[in-house]
């Protein structure tokens, strides 16, 4: 398959990239890992006269720690994230997402910013970004803004990024003590698969009262975008973490919070049933991790 012709730009700073994006207009596409964009260009799903490569901007592929948060550059690769100790320690559900994306060949190129901008409902890192309350860091040449990931997606393949904006990274608050999170993806094969259903869950509990004080659940592949599961989350608040309440949350997520469709990968009914099962399993594991972390 031939790629269409385009001009290639390789700015070395975010400032230069923003200038280029502004002058070239809406038509210019940003190239990060290229594992989705180059395929879309080859298949003529999108066209462009200008590609702006972000690979030359070192600041975009850094993972840095702030006082209570970690900043992940948008061009950080899956392999890089998965092998970084601060991610392994604080964000296991994100690491699990990175480890499940595509194949090892894809993971060596694919970036977290690319995964978010591609905005697939089935994206592997997206449920984790939702449950860790990540903020998307967006920049234009004259202003910066931070958008909660829960407001980032506007449809399949669509996000709230404006034409003159660049996603520079994500800010992830470090989860406090007594918390745990987990991610499970379901597909027909283990590698190079587009998920049938993917679920991430985060739990925090009070070790004195033994009650759940924070619960976040994110569902993938069962709506037009990756979504939070607010009704299931609210059933957990103030409850004692145990199987019955995890089951009830799964039931709520399945009945109220997801809107899957039938396609050749699976039926809506099957997906819905699996939302219930996977929600319960991710919550159970998240609680185990939360408990083992405080021992």
């Amino acid at each position: 398959m031939l790629l269409p012709t385009f001009e290639f730009h390789e700015p070395l700073s975010i400032k230069d990239a923003l200038k280029l994006k502004k002058s070239l207009g809406e038509d210019a596409k940003l190239l990060a890992g290229g594992t989705d964009l180059l395929v879309h260009l080859k298949k003529k799903l999108i066209t462009t006269n200008n590609l702006i490569s972000l690979s030359g901007i070192k600041a975009l592929s850094l993972i840095t720690k702030e006082k209570n948060a970690v900043i992940i550059g948008s061009c950080t690769t899956m392999t890089q994230l998965s092998s970084t100790p601060i991610i392994q320690k604080n964000f296991p559900a994100l690491k699990a997402g990175c480890d499940n994306l595509g194949t090892h060949l894809i993971r060596n190129r694919a970036t977290i910013g690319g995964n978010a901008c591609n905005a697939s409902p089935a994206g592997d890192t997206l449920p984790a970004l939702l449950i860790y309350d990540a903020l998307a860091l967006l920049e234009t040449s004259d202003k910066k803004r931070e958008i909660p990931m829960a407001d980032f997606f506007t449809g399949p393949g669509k996000s709230c990024i404006q034409p003159d904006e660049i996603l520079t990274g994500f800010r992830l608050p470090i989860p406090g003590k007594n918390s745990g999170a987990h991610y499970i993806q379901l597909g027909k094969r283990k590698s190079s698969e587009i998920n049938l259903v993917n679920v991430a869950a985060f739990l925090k509990y009070d070790p004195d009262t033994k009650k759940i004080i924070d619960a976040r659940i994110a569902l993938g592949s069962v709506a037009a975008t990756p979504i939070r599961s607010p009704k299931a989350e609210s059933t957990l608040m103030g409850q004692t973490p145990e199987e019955a309440c995890f089951f009830a949350a799964g039931e709520m997520a399945r009945r109220e919070d997801c809107h899957p469709i039938d396609d050749f990968r699976g039926s809506a009914r099957y997906r819905q049933a699996m939302v219930g099962v996977l929600t319960k399993r991710t919550l159970t594991r998240a609680y185990e991790l939360a408990r083992s972390a405080c021992i």
Partner: peptide, 27 residues
Amino acid sequence: CDTGDCGACTVIMDGNAVNSCLVLAVQ
């Protein structure tokens, strides 16, 4: 496949195996 699914085009780039069909030569 030319779309990063089959791995026939695998090369090692800066110590990491990648699909060379999904890397531009300029990159």
